[in-house]
Design a protein around this nucleic acid. Structure first.
Ligand code: MN
Ligand code: MN
Ligand code: ZN
Ligand code: ZN
Lengths: 155, 155
DNA sequence: TACTTGTTGATACTAAGTCTCACTAACACA
DNA sequence: TGTGTTAGTGAGACTTAGTATCAACAAGTA
């Protein structure tokens, strides 16, 4: 078993654990979908991508989107917000400090690869912004767009 | 004529000017739609909001969405990317330094009011992020979510 | 004023999901 | 290790947020 496969298996187990802890059932369709999602780690995908892959095994359209929604609620998946829409999903790595309320990412506009920032580049600015605008700040979402190392090398 | 009305009239003229400069025709349906949009300044709205308002005057559904797209291309409108989707639009104020590639906003999650930041709170961090990740950074999109002064006072 | 071509509205269509419901299978409990 | 309860499932209709097509129309130009 390769390193990456081990990482993926651990991610699958982690997500299944979250599912159980939250009182949801671990079903065959969910296991299959989570395995497919884990294989796309750090690479974004659409609901249709997933459905196309899982449909042959008998998995239904509604189940795909229901489970995507559930995984977003559990904080495991989030959506990419690109200029052409927000129908792409990506795994939020465990223990990355990211949540639906706090998200700092780099997205490659060519291949869709996603990197999460280790530290929030706005930590210091937020109090000042709240002061200046009168807003009470609850969270933020930063998407930096560009080309990943591989894609910019391929030019 | 009130202050706000004068501001709105100026905004309408500004947008119509952009339209002409870009070689598009100034038509009656476009003038009406732009007036409706200007009345929503700093407040977000959906395509359906606009259609509901303009339909009685005979304006068609396709025209509403076509024109919304055109105004996005001209940089006059942008979409809000909220956790429940990206179907809300907002006017990007002229000379705010914002564009589809560079967007820094505060959004009230209760009333939808939008404020644009005067200075980018990440100016300094971007070079360091590019260095650390190997990405070539082209632009970014920051949405800070919270409660505007009025909405947080109303608690 | 007439011409040319961009724009319009009606209508059909699509993409990305969501809802309903009869059926099925997880899993808590015996 | 069965059994019952109820969460989860797949098929298919439906919805939301647009987009494509196309004949009729009108803005800008000459
Ligand atoms: Mn942050
Ligand atoms: Mn910025
Ligand atoms: Zn890339
Ligand atoms: Zn508010």
């Amino acid at each position: 078993m390769h390193r990456a496969d081990a990482g993926r298996a651990a991610l699958v187990d982690y997500i299944l654990g979250l599912l159980e802890q939250a009182g949801h059932r671990v079903t065959e369709p969910r296991v299959q979908l989570i395995q497919a999602v884990a294989a796309w780690e750090r690479q974004s995908f659409t609901g249709e991508d997933l459905y196309a892959e899982l449909r042959p095994t008998g998995l239904g359209r509604a189940t795909v989107f229901r489970t995507l929604r559930l995984l977003q609620e559990l904080g495991v998946l989030s959506r990419l917000h690109l200029s052409d829409g927000c129908q792409r999903y990506v795994v939020t790595p465990p223990a990355s400090g990211h949540s639906p309320e706090h998200m700092d990412r780099l997205i490659c506009r060519r291949c869709g690869r996603v990197a999460y920032l280790d530290e929030c580049p706005m930590e210091d600015s937020l109090a000042r912004i709240a002061q200046a605008t009168g807003y009470r700040v609850d969270g933020h979402h930063l998407d930096i767009v560009g080309l990943c190392a591989e894609c910019s090398a391929a030019r």
